[in-house]
Each structure stands twice: as C-alpha cells, then as structure tokens.
Design a protein around this nucleic acid. Structure first.
Lengths: 196, 196
DNA sequence: TCATTATGACTGACCGGTCAGTCATAATGA
DNA sequence: TCATTATGACTGACCGGTCAGTCATAATGA
C-alpha cells in the first residue's frame, strides 16, 4: 500500500519542518504558515496531516520521548558504574546530536503548566521519572556490589539526571557552552560523586 | 515624597500579581487582563506602570537576577569546598523558597530565543555565566590548597551549576519531586565529585 | 469653614492587527 | 472520469494597547 507509506513519509517531513521552525522561533512565535513554508507546502495542507498546531508540538515531543526511551533501554552489560558512565554519555551525546529537537524541549517544559487536559501526551514529568528510575536501578546494583560510599540513595539519581539536564539547559540558553565537550566531565562527576 | 513611594509600592504589587499569574498559566497563556484582575485593578492601570506585557516579564526576571547575584556575592569565609557547599545549598534553598519566581524561569528560558532586540534584559546566559565563574573561582582556590583530585577544571563548574538547575527543572516539571529535600544531596555530590 | 476648581490616577469600551482553522476550488493521477 | 490530495483566500475569535471620560482627593480662596 504505497498510499499509506507515502502519507507517513509526508507527515514526517512536515513534522521535521515544524521542529526546525519551533527550534528557530520557539513554539509561541511559530505560525502554521511558517511551518508550511518551511515544508514547501500550503498552509491548508498541514491540516491534512495534523489536527492542530498543538498536535505538531505533541508529535515532536513523542519523537523525543521515543528516542529517550531507546537510549535508556540500551544499557548493555558490565559493572553498574560503567553502565552508568555509558548511560550518561549516551544521553548527553544524543541531545547534542539533535540540537533542534533539544531546543523544542524549552517549549515542552513550559507547556506542561498551561496544559489543561490531563491526558496530555506532553508528559515531561513521566520522562524524567523514567530517567531517575533507570539511574536509581543502576545505583542499587552498584550498592549491592559495594561500589558506593555509604548514604547514597535514590535522591542521588535525581541529582545525576539533574546534572545532565542542567548542562543541556545551559547550552540551550547559551550555545557558546559546548554540551558535547561536557559529556565526559558530567559522566565522571556523577560517578565519582557516588563511588566508594 | 509620599507620591513617588506610593507609585513604587503599587508597581511592585502589580509585578507580584504578574508573577503569580505567569507562574500559574505561563507567560504565553497570561493575558494583561488576568494580571489586572489578580491585582484588583483595571487593565488600563497596568499600562500606567508598565509599558507592555513584555516589560512585566523583564521586570520579573530582573528581580530573580538580582536575588541570584545577592546569593553569589554572599559567600562568607572558610575553606573553599565548604564555601562551595554553602553556595550550592543557598541557591537551591532560595529557589525552593520562591516557587512562583522559579516557575517564571520556564518562560525566561524559552524567551531568550524568540527575542530579537539584542539589548534584552532577559539575559539568562549572563546569569549562568556568572554562576559558573563564581563556582570556577572556588574550585581554583580549592585546587591551590590541594583539595581537588587531578583533572578538575572549569568544565566541572558547569556541571555543578547544571546539577542545581537540572534539579530545579525536574521540580518545575514534576512538583512531586521535592527540591528543598535535594539541597544537601546536590551539595554533597558536587563536592564529593571533585574532592581529592 | 466650605464652596469651587484642579489634579491625575483609574477605568473599561474600543480599535486594529494577527492567526488558527475552514472550505470552495483546482490539480493530480489512477 | 472521478477519487484523492493540495491550495490559499477567507473568517471570526482573540487580545495588546489606547484614550476619552470619571471621580476621589487636594488645593485654593472668599
């Protein structure tokens, strides 16, 4: 069924155009017309593939959430603290490799608030909860093997996730700060901060 | 001159109302009318004290920036790593103590992008640069006293600032995560992550 | 003292521009 | 031919910002 595939391909092209526009002007400053122009189509065509402007943002977020989940589920084997190092580096490098998607996070963060419908798919809280649980799991394993200093608990998982997201934030606000160059330092500090 | 004082008091009252409204609905979702209602005045009155909707956001940011700068300049004495601990805790506790102001940061972060006039006072990049320089200064002092493990450099300052801001971000996105309860853990991880 | 006049803070109706979403029509291609 | 897809002119709700007019209070002066 070439029709259906074609439709998905086109939808994806529009979505990517939207992400570029949102990254450049922010969601609040982006017009449907801008997205259409970026995708070389007419404004009305956008509505053949997406119901509303909001849905474009949701779809962009879903793409990000899917990639996040993929990174988290791809932990490999080895000692827990090595896997933690790998996890932190992968997340940072993935963010740095997709700057436009990362920029859209700025809008997703704020949109959580104004959202009224509870069933919103823009659930950043859920994404971070998943991050923290994954890191906490690794920490518990490391603790069981005696690799951690005493007193390390689940709160440290929040701080590790925070170190990543906080560097992302600084980079988004000030592109002069090179996020990719921080990957090793973040991983190192997170691990040394809990190691026995 | 009671007139002038009265004017400033009233301006401040409107600004605080604006911060509450922005925190609740986000800047993009806040109407001037909402701010006026929150302040128990008419819409037109808002314009007697602020030139535009944007200026309300700028003024809110300036208040935040001023408080930030105050915290950073109040480092006290003692061993550098102790001062670092104190700095991290102060920043986190200050953020946690002013949740409405913190929430407005969500909008300030995104507004950096859509901003066209370069002379914008919403310079979050500048604020973070100041944070990083202050932390880097403490790290250099600690290094000179031999308190750091080898290889610690200015990038570690970015990660420390990141740990704070990243926890703030998780809290803003998911109020179930208690920021105040993380203050000690953040401070501890940041210091243990660089200590010799 | 108290009527008259001046002030300026405040109000809210109004205007003009913007933009999300619609729909009649055209183009496409099977 | 005719079903599917694309177009872009159009609509109307919305909202930032304005401004003519009001009114409480202060100043004046008889």
């Amino acid at each position: 069924m070439p029709k259906r595939i074609d439709r998905l391909v086109r939808r994806e092209a529009i979505l990517e155009a939207a992400v570029r526009v949102f990254a450049r002007k922010g969601f609040a400053g982006s017009r449907i017309e801008d997205v259409a122009t970026e995708a070389n189509i007419a404004k009305g065509t956008v509505y053949l593939y997406f119901d509303s402007r909001e849905e474009l943002l949701s779809a962009a977020f879903e793409g990000y959430a899917a990639r996040s989940a993929a990174v988290l589920s791809d932990l490999g084997a080895g000692p827990p603290l090595e896997r933690l190092t790998w996890l932190v580096r992968s997340v940072v490098e993935t963010l740095a490799a997709h700057p436009d998607h990362a920029r859209v996070l700025l809008d997703v963060w704020s949109s959580a608030r104004s959202r009224t419908d509870a069933a919103s798919p823009l659930d950043m809280a859920q994404v971070y909860r998943h991050y923290r649980e994954t890191v906490a799991g690794l920490l518990r394993q490391a603790g069981a093997e005696g690799d951690l200093r005493p007193g390390v608990d689940d709160r440290h998982a929040a701080v590790i996730v925070g170190a990543i997201e906080g560097c992302l934030l600084q980079w988004l606000v000030d592109p002069a700060l090179p996020l990719a160059g921080l990957a090793d330092t973040i991983a190192e500090m997170c691990v040394e901060g809990v190691r026995a």
